Amino acid sequence: MSTPVIHDVHTLPRNDNVNAYAFSVELQGQWFLQKGKMIAYYGAIDFHGVGHGPLERLISTSFHSPLHAADWVVAEGRGKMVLADRAFDVNSYDLDDGNLTIRSGNLLAFQPSLSLKQSIIPGFLTLLGTGTFVAASNGPVVFAEPPIRVDPQALVGWADCPSPCHHYDHQYLRGFLGGVRAHTGLGGVSGEEHQFEFVGAGTVLLQSTEQLMAERPTGEVASEPGIPGGGGPGGGSGSQVPQLPGAFGGLQQRFGL
């Protein structure tokens, strides 16, 4: 049996992965955190609620999603924070004057140099600007260029490309299974029948599973297993993914060892 690695404030990585499922942020100032995603910290760190604290100027500059205000806090001080989301894959990403829209449940933390906005698409948030954010996924993330059609359950987000359109395979729906659903109401719409269609330049982020992320009231902790932000453990590997193409934003993934 191998000897476990025991970390302290000096041996924890600086803004890098502790392992595939945990990320260490070196805090020297402020970060926005989704509630419940910090599992431990070292140092002198205070936590302020969004909308009712002494950081009104910071929040008015960097946080523009009132529907999600109850889900977030600001960490302020100096130290190291360990972020995780129930054994889902966790990684950091850099935006360089970019525009990224991501599922709200997947986003764990971001630097105040980025501006968070409410997407017009329910269940998604948009990050604008230059800075680092930390996100979870159910399995390693796959990066793809448009034009592409994506299973909605596998979609994590998209960077620097137009919002997707819905695409339905009506020939499939009119077939035998479509008739069964029409008469019985049984069965859902799978990724083979319904996709998000992306066109134009940019990058699409996919998680390597089709596990559905169910809608839930904003501010409520989900309990669905198998989805980031909502339940039981997910799998993952520490597989390395190459740097994303530099189209329209310089989104880059960084992995720990």
Rank of each mutant, 00 (worst) to 15 (best):
P140M: 09
N91P: 01
P164H: 10
H166S: 13
N106A: 15
L177C: 10
P146V: 08
F88E: 02
W72M: 10
Y168F: 15
D71I: 05
G178E: 12
Q153A: 11
W158P: 12
D151W: 05
I121F: 08
F110A: 02
E145P: 01
P146Q: 09
A135E: 00
F110C: 02
V82Q: 03
Q111K: 13
T184S: 13
V142I: 09
S163R: 08
H170D: 11
L205E: 00
C165S: 07
D169L: 07
T203W: 04
T209S: 15
A84N: 03
L114C: 03
G202T: 11
S92Q: 06
A109E: 00
F176A: 10
S115I: 14
P147I: 02
G139T: 06
W158H: 12
I120M: 06
L116I: 04
G77Q: 01
L100A: 14
L127A: 12
R103F: 08
L177S: 10
V204F: 01
G179L: 07
A84M: 00
L206P: 03
G79P: 13
F88I: 00
V142G: 13
H167L: 06
V73E: 01
T126D: 02
L127I: 13
G77C: 04
G157T: 12
V82E: 03
T132W: 01
C165M: 14
T130S: 15
D85I: 01
E145F: 04
D96F: 06
D71A: 15
S208L: 13
S104A: 08
L186E: 11
L205F: 06
T101E: 03
A136E: 03
G178S: 12
S137W: 09
Q211A: 10
H183Q: 10
I148E: 04
Q195S: 09
L95H: 01
E76A: 14
S208K: 07
Q111P: 05
D169R: 14
N138W: 08
R78D: 11
D94G: 04
D160W: 09
